[in-house]
Amino acid sequence: MVPTMSGENTVREIGHDEFDPKGTLVLILVYFGVLSVMWVFMYFVEFLGNDLTVLV
């Protein structure tokens, strides 16, 4: 790849060591939160929303 292209809207260059993706961590934690809630919800949909399954 060619060297860094600074876009016109770049107000500051942030290098590897200065960048700490905390916002990404927050978004990923929110996503895992949503996934966990959906899994719990799925339990209700599958097991409590239906009759018992008879295993023969």
């Binding site: 600074s6 876009g7 809207n9 770049t10 107000v11 960048f19 993706p21 990404t24 978004l27």
Partner: peptide, 16 residues
């Protein structure tokens, strides 16, 4: 998900 969002965040922080 992590790498792409972190790269976008890097862009956002460079844009102020």
């Amino acid at each position: 998900a992590f790498t792409v969002v972190a790269s976008v965040e890097h862009g956002a922080r460079q844009r102020g």
